[in-house]
């Protein structure tokens, strides 16, 4: 069963948000989504300086077998993207909550987010 990390919040579109209220929020996709996609070979991220809107698409994640839109779980300005994951998208499979993070946003507003417990329950993940 795919791992759901306890201290994060999740969107129903499978993005995780790491926000402690002190700085930009880190965003990635859950292990549930990464496992379902299969081996990820390409990721298209929003540009630094662009504004993303909660619930709207802001990029895409492509595996050998399928492609999936990336939805912004929060609204705000993108302040950093993970260049490592752009050059080595397999990091999303191997370490979705760590080295496979995607981008950071200076959050203005959060979209509707689930707790780790709620997300795990809804998606068959393992806390």
């Amino acid at each position: 069963m795919s791992k759901v990390k306890a201290e994060l919040k999740y969107s129903k579109e499978h993005e995780w948000v790491a926000a402690d209220g002190t700085g930009p929020a880190g965003i990635g996709i859950s292990a549930v989504a990464a496992d379902a996609l299969g081996d990820i070979v390409y990721v298209d991220l929003p540009e630094v300086g662009s504004t993303v809107t909660a619930g709207e698409t802001c990029g895409e994640v492509e595996s050998t077998k399928s492609v999936s839109d990336l939805y912004a779980p929060v609204t705000g300005e993108v302040v950093e993207i993970n260049d490592d994951v752009v050059s080595d998208p397999a990091l999303i499979n191997s370490d979705p909550y760590g080295a496979g993070w995607l981008f950071k946003v200076a959050v203005i507003d959060e979209g509707p987010l689930l707790s780790a417990e709620e997300y795990a329950a809804a998606n068959g993940g393992e806390l």
């Binding site: 299969g38 081996d39 070979v41 050998t64 077998k65 499979n93």
Partner: peptide, 8 residues
């Protein structure tokens, strides 16, 4: 079977 581990 679709895959056993990594399809790549």
């Amino acid at each position: 079977p679709l895959k056993y581990g990594s399809e790549l």
